[in-house]
Design a protein around this nucleic acid. Structure first.
Lengths: 122, 122
DNA sequence: CTGGATCCCTATGGATACTG
DNA sequence: CAGTATCCATAGGGATCCAG
């Protein structure tokens, strides 16, 4: 659906668009999910172990990361890979489906970048 | 900045990207701001008066709309236009700067749409 | 109509300790 | 290390009433 600024769009069209937007917000909303996606995409380290991610995302707590990863996993956006080492380590990776959101996150990131430029300038 | 899946990106690059992403999240995050943007963009009615918006966005309360609009106005994303009728009415419109986010919201919306299709299909 | 003030309940999320 | 459980403080947000 193309969102254009025009007059008297039907309320149904508007509602459909709102539902779609709400879905994205529900899935990716909150403080951390996009950051997690970004971290897993950029992949600073070779493997994304739980503690690496905690250290890699400034401010996130283990509890939060655990919860957010569980949400993302439920939506098939992130994959959980258990390594049966001793002690056990767990690696996380984006799924193919999760990757479908990367271009969107990139747009968000770009807007944020130019916004930062603007703020810095004044 | 282009986000690519590659190995050993510097931590600084990662942090810069995270800050930009965090900015977008802080400005547009939460349950309502994107819905408000969408509503003001699609413009179901001729003029976007306060009460029209409350009625147009399912579930939002007056208190919330008031607060969110104030935030958006502070960031120069939305403009407040007072009509000195009796009783007073207030119209809201997206600014040019606010419009710069529309393509991003559109991406989000599109992802949400295809996600809905997927859910419906199974 | 616009939108602030108040009351109140719940979800969010931090710190810490604990288990496998 | 990975994750869960507990405790606790605070923010989010609904309902309602009121004033300009």
């Amino acid at each position: 659906m193309k969102v254009k600024s025009r007059r008297n769009v039907s309320a149904e069209q508007c509602n459909e668009a709102m539902l779609a937007l709400r879905d994205s917000i529900e899935i990716w909303g909150g403080k951390w999910k996009l950051m997690i996606l970004l971290y897993l995409t950029i992949k600073v380290k070779e493997k994304n172990f739980f503690m690496e991610i905690v250290r890699g995302i400034p401010g996130i707590s283990g509890k939060m990361l655990s919860k957010e990863l569980k949400d993302l996993e439920m939506n098939k956006l992130v994959e959980r890979i258990v390594h049966t080492t001793a002690p056990i380590t767990v690696e996380y990776a984006i799924t193919e489906y999760g990757k479908s959101f990367v271009p969107v996150a990139e747009k968000l990131l770009q807007w944020g970048m130019s916004h930062r430029e603007l703020i810095k300038a004044k």
